[in-house]
Design a protein around this nucleic acid. Sequence first.
DNA 1: TCTGGGGTCCTAGGACCC
DNA 2: TCTGGGGTCCTAGGACCC
Length: 417
Amino acid sequence: MGPPRAATVLHADLDAFYASAEQLLDPSLSRRPIAVGTGVVLAASYEARAFGVSAGMPAWRARQLCPDLAFVPGHFREYQRLGNEVMDVLAAFTPVVERVSIDEAFLEVAGARRLFGPPIAIATAIRRRVREEVGLPLSVGVARTKHLAKVASQVAKPDGLVVVEPDDEAGFLARLPVGLIWGVGPATRAQLATAGIRTIGELAAAPGALLDHLLGRTIGEKLTALATNVDPRRIGPARPASSMGAQAALGRRRATPELLRSTLGYLADRVASRLRHAGRAARTVTVRVRFPGLRSVTRSATLRTPVCATLTLTEIATGLAGAALAEHRAEREVTLLAVSVSNIVVPAFQLPLPMSSGGAHAGHERLADAARWGADRSVDAVRARFGHGAVGYATVVFSDAARVPDEFRELAEHGPS
DNA sequence: TCTGGGGTCCTAGGACCC
DNA sequence: TCTGGGGTCCTAGGACCC
């Protein structure tokens, strides 16, 4: 146990970010119930939430709840710009900023006190500057640990500030619902409810053995630690992503070879391009196929030789999807296809040194992917100058999967900026 | 006429090795 | 011949988060 620390961790979280951004960009939308999205609600303004509209809800249901709801398709590049502007404001107060997503970050302000005053003054100044300079409402939680700061910012919403002093932590948490704990979703909440546990206070008081039995040992121990305020996580730069993927919802479509080829080609191209851009290749390829009724299956393969060529990845993905469909002959239609890669490494053929491992066969595979990688590099270069749609495999460029705007996909990709 | 796209982490069983 | 224990990797599925 280290020495007791002061409450110097801030969690800054923009309120209903996409919806607030739309209200900022088009003042005629401000103070009105609006939703960003098309088929599904990506974000709802607080005026819409008052009617029960929430993120993830199908559009028809949202309109049912709120007949006056205004639907906005979304301006994703603007969200990226506004999110970056907010992060610039945060960085003006401390260099120790950990951006978690487009609209959310942790800050450590222990070293900023001499310049800017106590954490509560810093939080107040940040909120004012974001409001005045960017035009968006920001909620901030201040506490001794990341977990507590995050809970505090949720309690502060909308447009508020909550400080949890170190001697008040247990009291602050006790009455809050367990669902506010990071990692407790609907399933865990339901499990806990069967044991009569609904508040964080009840969770903290529950015997460890009961939680282990209910949720498994790892999660049980983690929840107890969080509920009792043991949170060793420090604030620092995010690790490089350990997986990359792309997916496309298709509506209900017959699973024809043409559909598979064009959709998987498009998705594999997106993933392979990102791998090459990062100077990486991947050993494990996973395909997910979803059927009507949200039933889904995954198939994966781990290769000896990492891949990053579009055609190689397409072939592997097509093979995996074919195998999955062959095992589910009764399913005639698919609603979603996804391609992702993990086991990400620096590819051997980009290194100047001779091959260090693998037999003749592995060397052959590597050369095949390397030759394609050379061709892909030419494609990448053209795209860098003239845009992504300028060149590509014909069946892929015209795939239905490309209907979702690229800006949205880019926004959702992990690394901001 | 059940809903977007991009991620992380955990579990459980099996293969394989020492 | 049968038995024991531990570690690592792989696969499939699921919960969860923004």
